[in-house]
Design a protein around this nucleic acid. Structure first.
Length: 821
DNA sequence: TTTGATGCCTTTTTT
DNA sequence: AGGCATCAAA
């Protein structure tokens, strides 16, 4: 949305067209004679090693150092290489010191990777780059320096989502608002949304403000911000917003950073939200005539985070924001086969409002496989068949590490996991529950936080009665009120209140012990090695013992995690340093060295590549997701399509797409239609894979007429009444009409003899949601099926029957297709 | 405090 | 459907 920027005075100032002007002192001359001289010097010298091997566009992106540059880097076009080489180039031409480069990424992973790769190019110099990091980590660094300008102390705490929700809940209750009707979590989401847009409580739209808690939205938001200040705390959004405030209100501070950052680079620019954009504009802005050496790299076709506030618009209007910007497109792809690029390119061409790139590759290998589209009866069969293919590849000595299953929604993962467990296939789920989000880790962290930052009331409340110390709600409430009345932190309140007789003797004693413990730990903070102190805290507090005495199945794992936590502290110098790391880096490294298939969502796959990629679940309603359609309309659909594009372009050599005709969603069996994206794939690069083993020998005419003898399953599915109806709403007939093809069956890289028992076809999309009705059959019944003949029912699941057919073997069919024999 | 019941939600995720 | 979280009651 456009909200926000236009009323920011600072941005209204149109930068003048760039013209040659003497550079102010302290900034290297970048135009005119000096520049030409430098360019001449550069030419005179042999091209440095790191520049060789770049294609012309990449070179241009690396060597255009003056003025704004937008690099539109398609998938697999060497984006990271350009970024890292550009930095190396800046450093080795002495344009700037390492500390004068601001390089921003979105994730810690990306930052880490960039640092490593720059290290390879320039060696130790990378260590002198303190301003390479995520928006948030750089934000923290800025804020620690200037905290007092926004009313914080520099040792402020960073709250994570969980803390924020609990805090908001308290505020809602304090206002006397029903927290059932107005969930804290929802409000936390709203605040997050506002902060993504860079809005203060005073700036939020009236409508938004009224939408929550009978119009108290604005007051609550303001109360929340106040509470954060008293707690000396920040949420993630503040890590961006506070620096923005500081830059706006203190021109001298901003000027310092303008002088400092000679070069600014931003990765994944298409993912920036409004707040990040404002932050960046403030830093990149220069006095008129001074070049804005800002280089943003991104791909509008890979913008998949609109739902969390990313503004594709930021990348689309770069040239307006930075007049005179040079736009460089990287379209030469080094990752995928022509078929994969062809399929992806054709798909994404259905989006409007693109900057327009077409990936190409020189490689043409007749052996390259087209993108394969497969059909399956249901998700179970889908998982089984994918498992088969993986084993097949494995037998041809492909590494599991080179394969990935990319799903739209995480509930799809389970089916694959189940199957792989059965097969004994190693797999790795990426993006599951995070280490630092585990209960025991958060508890332990709360102890550490409170030792380092006694004002951290959230931490205090979290652990004051963990393990159980008889300090229940009543006591905590009393303490809370006491602290609030005097405007002091709860730990401080605790040490006061135990001197009084406000509490019952039992609670008083327990609280006394807690206070004493924390005093002792605090006194050890400077003198004891932090890992030892941490261990000591967990032991003396009784926290370790609590889990040791716990006989539930998870307890040993939790203890193990605590050990792991202590171990991971070793890499840090102090408890404080560790806390900061955890606040910002919520992920823990996974165990590498294991050959395993990766299972993850399409979102978490961005930036990765695999030899073989499986894309299951391409069905209307799931992908594109119904909710994206309902809530996002056309742009929602386009974002889904970009997601599909991201999925396909992850593949280097093989890309296998699946759809099923029946899927269980929220416990109900639903018949599904193939995704419209399938229809948007170009015939030239896609094959419809047909399982040669389909029901044990159809095709040899074993079981009478099957419509599949005449046409592929797509024609069947696609000529369903429902599908046709769906088509009518689409204006232009699609260019790729599967229906024009007849009888095409792709030679599968075969399922061997041990392959799946065969696809139960029956594409008729008539499977009504009959699952709730009791089946009219029972196990053991003798039944007749039009195609498979006679058989006995082996099992019943809702309206799905597993039947042992006399001639066709075991199949699963819908009960609508059989009758009692 | 622990247990049992009830109600709710169910796309994607970073920091 | 089912899993989880929260809530009320013992």
């Amino acid at each position: 949305m456009m909200s926000g920027f236009d009323d920011i005075p600072f941005f209204d100032e149109e930068p003048a067209p760039r013209k040659q002007q003497p550079a102010p002192a302290g900034i290297p001359a970048t135009g005119g004679i000096a520049a030409r001289a430098m360019a001449a010097r550069d030419r005179a010298q042999p091209r440095p090693d790191y520049l060789s091997g770049l294609n012309p566009e990449q070179s241009e992106a690396v060597e255009t150092l003056d003025g704004p540059v937008l690099v539109l880097a398609g998938a697999g076009t060497g984006k990271t290489r350009v970024l890292t080489t550009r930095i190396a180039h800046i450093l080795s031409t002495n344009r700037a010191f390492p500390s004068q480069i601001l390089a921003v990424t979105f994730t810690n992973k990306a930052a880490r990777e960039m640092k490593e790769r720059i290290g390879v190019l320039v060696g130790h110099a990378v260590e002198g780059m303190p301003w390479l990091g995520t928006f948030h980590s750089i934000g923290v660094k800025l804020l620690r320096r200037h905290a007092e300008l926004v009313g914080l102390r520099s040792d402020f705490t960073i709250l994570d989502t969980d803390d924020v929700v609990r805090l908001i809940k308290q505020l809602i209750q304090a206002e006397g608002i029903d927290d059932k009707r107005w969930p804290a979590k929802q409000f936390a989401g709203m605040i997050d949304g506002w902060k993504n847009k860079g809005l203060d409580p005073a700036q939020i739209p009236e409508g938004d403000a009224r939408a929550f808690a009978n119009g108290k939205g604005r007051e609550l938001y303001a109360a929340y911000q106040n509470r954060l200040l008293t707690l000396n705390a920040c949420d993630f959004g503040d890590l961006l917003l506070h620096p923005i405030r500081i830059f706006r209100m203190h021109a001298d501070v901003l000027k310092d950073y303008h002088d400092k950052f000679r070069y600014i680079l931003v990765d994944e620019y298409q993912d920036t939200n409004t707040a990040q954009y404002m932050w960046l504009r403030l830093l990149a802005q220069r006095p008129k005539g001074v070049p804005q050496n800002v280089c943003c790299v991104g791909d509008d076709d890979q913008s998949i985070y609109g739902w969390r506030g990313a503004e594709v618009d930021n990348i689309l209007r770069f040239e307006k924001d930075f007049p005179g910007a040079k736009v460089i497109k990287l379209e030469r792809n080094y990752r995928s086969t022509e078929h994969i690029l062809g399929a992806a390119g054709h798909l994404i061409a259905h989006n409007e409002g693109r900057l327009g790139k077409t990936l190409f590759t020189d490689r043409t290998d007749p052996d390259d496989e087209k993108v394969q589209v497969h059909a399956a009866w249901d998700s179970e069969e889908e998982a089984r068949a994918v498992g088969e293919e993986i084993e097949q590849l494995q037998r041809k000595s492909h590494k599991l590490n080179d394969m990935a299953i990319l799903v739209r929604a995480s509930f799809q993962m389970r089916e694959f996991e189940d199957r792989f467990v059965t097969l004994g296939l190693n797999y790795r789920v990426i993006g599951g529950p995070r280490f630092y989000e585990r209960l025991e880790i958060r508890d332990a962290m709360a102890y550490f936080r409170l030792v380092c930052q006694p004002a951290d009331d959230l931490a205090f409340e979290r652990i004051v009665n963990t393990p159980k110390r008889g300090l229940g709600d009543t006591t905590v409430r009393t303490l809370h009120d006491y602290a609030r009345a005097r405007d002091i932190p709860m730990l401080a309140a605790a040490s006061e209140i135990i001197e009084t007789d406000e509490l019952k003797p039992k609670a008083r004693k327990a609280l006394f012990d807690v206070v004493t413990d924390f005093r002792r730990w605090q006194s050890l903070l400077e003198t004891t090695v932090h890992t030892e102190l941490a261990e000591q805290i967990l032991d003396e507090s009784g926290y370790t013992a609590m889990w040791q005495n716990d006989k539930t199945a998870e307890a040993p794992g939790r203890l193990e995690n605590l050990k792991e936590l202590i171990r991971s502290m070793e890499a840090f110098e102090s408890l404080r340093g560790f806390l900061e790391h955890v606040a910002l880096v919520m992920d823990a490294e996974q165990n590498e060295n294991l050959d395993a298939v990766s299972i993850m969502t399409l979102h978490s796959a961005k930036g990765l590549e695999f030899d073989t990629v499986f894309l299951p679940g391409w069905e209307e309603g799931l992908f594109p997701h119904q909710r994206a359609l309902d809530e996002g309309g056309r742009s929602g659909l386009e974002e889904e399509r970009r997601l599909a594009y991201v999925g396909i372009t992850r593949a280097k050599h093989r890309c296998h797409i699946w759809f099923v005709s029946n899927r269980r969603i929220h416990g109900l069996w639903q018949s599904t239609m193939p995704s419209r994206f399938l229809e948007e794939l170009p015939l030239a690069h896609v094959d419809v894979a047909e399982n040669e083993q389909s029901y044990g020998g159809y095709g040899r005419g074993g079981y009478g007429q099957s419509r599949f003898d005449k046409a592929d399953p797509f024609q069947n599915n696609y000529s369903t009444p429902g599908w046709k109806r769906a088509q009518q709403h689409r204006s232009d007939a699609t260019r790729d009409n599967w229906g024009t093809r007849s009888g095409h069956a792709v030679e599968r890289i075969g399922y061997g003899e041990s392959g799946p028992r065969g696809r139960t076809i029956d594409g008729e999309l008539v499977a009504k949601s009959t699952a709730t009705e009791p089946s009219r059959f029972s196990v053991g019944d003798r039944v007749f099926h039009m195609k498979f003949g006679n058989g006995n029912i082996a099992a019943i699941e809702g309206n799905k029957l597993t039947i042992d057919f006399d001639r066709a073997g075991q199949k699963r069919v819908l009960d609508g297709f059989v009758e009692k024999a």
